Simulated assay, not measured.
Amino acid sequence: MYLNFYGLTEKPFNPTPDPRFLYMSPGHREALAQLLYGVQERKGFIVLTGQVGTGKTTLVHALRQRLNGQTAVAFVFNSTLPFDGILEYALQDLGVPKAGESRAQQLIALNNFLVERERAGQNTVLILDEAQNLDASTLEQVRLLSNFETPTSKLLQIVLVGQPELKARLQIPELQQLRQRVGLRSQIAPLTAAEARTYIRTRLRIAGSRDLGLFSDPAVDRIVEYSGGIPRLINVVCDHCLLFGYADQKRRIDRQIVGQAVEYLEEGTQPRRRPRRSRAASGPARARWIVGTLAVATATAAVALALRFDTTVLGLMQSVRGLLSP
């Protein structure tokens, strides 16, 4: 809708985790480097945490792109699956031929697959997204997958990705053994005001915009104030700002438009706009009103005079008739 108006080739603030739009803030850059290091050095368990919408899933997709062809990746994003479901999903994602229906048969098939890849000098990664939703029993069974190892290295690298609640979940006594096996921890923080400004400009540039200052500094300040530096919320607000700006035919997004977008997101209704008339337009309108008023007054006076004249003439005629009558 607004792409041509703002000179964009695609939507810059889509909610999907597209790695092309990944903005590498210092925090994201450090987290990605840690993930790469943990996988390549076969650290076993790796934990990545961050608030909702901070870009964890986008970072994981970037990790998959940066891993060389010697690494197979199974990405399980449905955290409501029981362990058997996770195991079945991972086997299919890794391309392991179906070995049977029982858990024992599936584990044997996975072990054989991992051993063959190790002999070929290849690595294997299992990524579990939204891991804070996994119960203690499922996490403990996931831990047992780390027992696939040789005397010198881990055959399966397991990345647990989740919200800050995941750190609290790993502190419970039942998961002590898993906690002790975590070889690397990383955390993503919300963007600062300066990072958010660069984030918006980066996404505009990737989407083909020639005006990277499309959002004014006061507008960005209001966006950061509302979103708390969470990239997902920044995307939602910015997308609505472009819609409101297009509706108002404004080439630059100012703080007022951001306020309208925030009000819409909070209240669910479009803010009322009062029609504004310029002074140039009000002059002729006022003149027309005056002329119209004078015309009505003149017509009224004319009617009154006509009625008075008719009454006078009628009275005179009646008087003449009285004199002539015998």
Rank of each mutant, 00 (worst) to 15 (best):
T71I: 08
Y37M: 09
V115H: 07
M1R: 08
R288L: 15
Q318K: 15
Y37L: 14
A193M: 12
W289Q: 15
L160W: 05
Y2F: 15
D221T: 14
L145C: 09
P82C: 03
T202I: 00
T312G: 02
R272P: 12
A99K: 12
L265V: 03
G162L: 08
R273F: 04
R255N: 06
G183V: 05
R274I: 15
P15V: 10
C241R: 05
L128C: 02
V262T: 14
L156G: 03
D239T: 05
V182M: 07
E165I: 01
I108V: 14
S216C: 06
R181I: 01
D310M: 13
L3K: 12
R117M: 04
L22G: 00
R222G: 00
A136S: 11
Q163D: 07
R222A: 13
L48I: 04
P231H: 06
R321P: 00
F309H: 14
R42M: 08
E195W: 11
P326I: 00
D135G: 11
R20Q: 13
L204D: 04
E41Y: 12
Q180T: 05
A302Q: 12
L87A: 13
L48V: 03
R119Y: 03
L184C: 04
T138E: 08
L243P: 02
R42C: 06
L316R: 09
P12T: 05
L191P: 06
L204E: 08
T80N: 14
R169V: 06
T124H: 04
R197F: 12
A306K: 03
D254S: 02
L170S: 01
K98T: 10
G322W: 06
E266R: 15
L59K: 00
H28I: 02
I188K: 08
Y6P: 12
Y226G: 02
P275M: 12
F21M: 03
P218K: 05
D18P: 06
R308E: 11
I108F: 09
L170F: 01
D310K: 12
K250S: 11
L81N: 06
R205Q: 14
E174A: 13
E165P: 06
T192P: 10
G100D: 12
Q132A: 13
E149H: 05
C238K: 02
G50M: 11
I108H: 03
Y6I: 10
I230H: 00
I206N: 04
D84F: 00
A280E: 15
L166T: 01
Q70F: 08
T269P: 00
V76W: 04
A74R: 03
Q260V: 00
D254R: 08
S325R: 09
A295V: 05
L126I: 08
P164C: 05
D221V: 13
A99T: 15
N133F: 09
A74M: 10
F113V: 03
R20A: 12
L316K: 09
L126W: 05
L67T: 05
T311K: 14
G50S: 08
I223H: 06
L22Y: 15
G27H: 07
G100M: 12
V313A: 07
D239N: 11
T298F: 15
T269V: 14
D221K: 11
S209G: 10
